[in-house]
Computed example of a mutant assay.
Amino acid sequence: MFLYFIGEWITYTLMAIALGMDAFSVSLGFGMANIRLRKIFFIGLLVGIFHIIMPFTGMLLGQMISNQFGTFAVYLGGVLLMILGIQMFISSFSNGENHIMLDKFGILVFAVTVSLDSFSIGLSLGMFGVKAIFALFLFGSVSTILTWLGFLLARKVNHLLGAYSEILGGSILFAFGLKLLLA
């Protein structure tokens, strides 16, 4: 019984890390915009909340939603990331501080986009129970931590790259969105 619990814990942890890696990758791109620590903290929490809400919603909807909706959501997320990447790339050539990723809508788009794949995981997790609640908590916690790590790592790299960091960040977002579309 104990070994079974450990095996499930390891499985959920690996799933949580896999889901959180999207948030980590995208936060590397967004982090190049030199975002304040307070905002990084908020964004990480929001990503964690969405990594709980999306699989929970998937569990509730269960078999009522087809796999095609999950595919559509991934494509939508890819297009949104590409648009944000292009906007960040273009804004790197302007003198203003008008970055879409710094406003409330951009943060919400970021959190939803990196959490879309967890909806599909929720569909496959199935029935409710203590283990499902544990998995949801783990998904939220790990994605929050990985988001923070991505932003903080990007802040360090940002100082090394200077003016080119925002171009790199926009390119990362665009490439990640393209990867979602082509996968």
Rank of each mutant, 00 (worst) to 15 (best):
A135T: 13
I83T: 10
V114N: 07
L149K: 02
F50I: 15
V26I: 15
G7F: 10
L168E: 02
G140F: 00
T57E: 08
H99L: 09
G122E: 01
L136D: 00
L178V: 11
V157F: 15
G78Y: 04
S120M: 10
L125W: 07
G126V: 08
I49E: 05
K39G: 02
L180N: 05
D117I: 09
L153Q: 12
G126K: 08
G177F: 03
L14H: 04
H99N: 04
K39S: 10
G106W: 12
G44S: 15
I83S: 03
L46N: 14
L19A: 12
V157G: 01
S143V: 04
V79Q: 10
L123T: 02
T11W: 08
L125I: 02
M64R: 13
F89S: 05
V157K: 07
L152P: 02
F30D: 00
G106L: 10
F50R: 02
A183R: 06
F110I: 05
L149H: 03
Y75K: 13
K179Y: 14
E97F: 08
I121N: 05
G177Y: 04
S27L: 04
L3A: 14
L160C: 07
N34T: 07
L28F: 01
G31S: 13
D103Q: 09
L138K: 15
I52K: 00
M64D: 12
G129L: 06
L161S: 10
A154H: 11
I43P: 00
T144L: 14
F134T: 11
G170N: 11
R38H: 07
G162W: 09
F89Y: 15
L84K: 12
W148A: 02
I86R: 03
L153A: 11
F137I: 15
I10T: 12
L108Y: 14
Y12D: 12
A23Y: 11
F134D: 08
L180H: 05
M21E: 04
F134V: 09
R36W: 04
G140R: 01
D22V: 03
T11Y: 09
F139P: 00
H99D: 13
L46K: 13
L123W: 00
L168W: 11
M64Y: 15
A154R: 10
H159Y: 08
V109T: 13
T144G: 08
M88P: 00
N98E: 09
A23D: 04
I83K: 09
F69E: 00
I90F: 06
L45D: 03
L168R: 06
M1R: 04
M32C: 15
M32S: 15
A18M: 09
I52H: 00
A18L: 10
G170L: 04
S124A: 05
T11I: 06
G170P: 08
Q68C: 01
G122Q: 01
F56H: 04
F119I: 10
A132N: 08
L123Y: 00
G106C: 08
L138Y: 14
L181H: 07
